[in-house]
């Protein structure tokens, strides 16, 4: 999996595309919402944005809550002009309305806690699935590099979290307890001079293994945990984990299947979480995890199912 980010800055559709032009207050004024996958802007693009915001807006750009960029203050009669100028600068307008939104990622690629190249995964999700097609409602995907989940994957329709489950190599462990200090959840203890992991309390963030000065911990199980049905707003719902330790391709497949299932089963104006509640978590899980080995399906406990509810 190797994606060149410049691909996203080469728009395929240049015609006076209206998605991504957000009406703002003020007569005939719009904000151009730009696609910034994983929140990465090149220096060249920043220069173009500065130039375009002066030429078509009011010399400002706004950062959105999902790592996007908007150029405010554009007159509706200048749409064709700015569409062309944006295309020349190599930037696309982002989705708005009932469509997939730009994929968000934390900085897991460079963060010391990261278990995963979050930028690459977010770009790949964009490349494969963000086609601008109309869906029942908005559809948001977020990627996080570890269980700290800085990009809030559990509050997106689909969330992917990089995980690394530790295992102690007892013969190499000196019982120094650095790993005990590294674990935020008190899931490592020293027993008879050796580190022991409490599986029930461990969220597979991998911090203990990364901190071990003697490399006495391996991470034999790594991959991605998959959450679905999260959202935030007037109503809130925390996404439910439906699959675990997925390989990159398995996770990408699952994102595609979830999007297709939502397109086919979602009622108008209904977010994925509501559709899943209507269909039942078990049926949803079976529909979207089809070909995956059973041990990768998360067992949905009654507590997990009870927690997957709409909050106001």
């Amino acid at each position: 999996m190797s994606v060149d980010p410049s691909e996203f800055y080469t728009p395929k559709v240049i015609d006076a595309q209206l998605t991504g032009m957000i009406k703002t207050v003020g007569e005939n004024k719009y904000s151009a919402r730009l696609k910034v996958p994983a929140g990465i802007l090149t220096a060249g693009l920043l220069e173009s944005l500065a130039r375009l915001s002066r030429a078509y807006g009011r010399g400002e750009v706004y950062l959105t809550a999902r790592l996007g960029v908007e150029i405010p203050g554009i007159s509706g009669d200048r749409f064709p002009e700015i569409s062309r100028a944006l295309a020349d600068a190599g930037v696309s307008l982002a989705g708005c309305g009932p469509r997939m939104r730009t994929t968000v990622a934390c900085k897991g690629t460079v963060c010391p806690h990261g278990n995963l190249d979050t930028f690459q995964l977010a770009w790949e999700i964009e490349r494969r699935f963000n086609d601008g097609a109309v869906l029942p409602h908005k559809f948001k995907v977020a990627v996080a590099g570890c269980a700290s989940t800085c990009s809030k994957p559990q509050l997106n329709d689909v969330g992917l979290v990089g995980v690394a489950e530790p295992a102690v190599r007892a013969e190499a462990c000196t019982g120094c307890s650095v790993c005990v200090e590294a674990c935020h959840l008190d899931a490592v203890r020293i027993v008879d001079g050796k580190a022991v992991i409490d599986r029930a309390g461990c969220v597979a963030c991998g911090d203990c293994a990364k901190a071990c000065p003697l490399a006495a911990m391996d991470t034999p199980r790594t991959g991605l945990h998959l959450f679905a049905g999260g959202r935030w707003g007037r109503e809130r719902q925390v996404g439910i984990r439906i699959a675990e330790f997925l390989a990159g391709e398995e996770a990408l497949d699952a994102v595609g299947r979830i999007k297709a299932w939502y397109r086919d089963n979602g009622a108008r104006k209904e977010r994925l979480g509501q559709t899943v509640l209507r269909a039942g978590v078990g049926r949803f899980q079976a529909a979207v995890l089809g070909g995956l080995p059973r041990e990768k399906w998360t067992r949905i406990t009654p507590e997990a199912e009870a927690g997957f509810r709409v909050m106001r």
């Binding site: 010391p112 000196t174 120094c176 307890s177 650095v178 200090e181 590294a182 911090d207 990364k210 901190a211 000065p213 003697l214 490399a215």
Partner: peptide, 22 residues
Amino acid sequence: EPVASIPRTLKDEGHELLAVER
């Protein structure tokens, strides 16, 4: 926090950790 991150940074940067004692 110091012991969770500093030995790890030293290791990542290629220094050799000789001993860690509590």
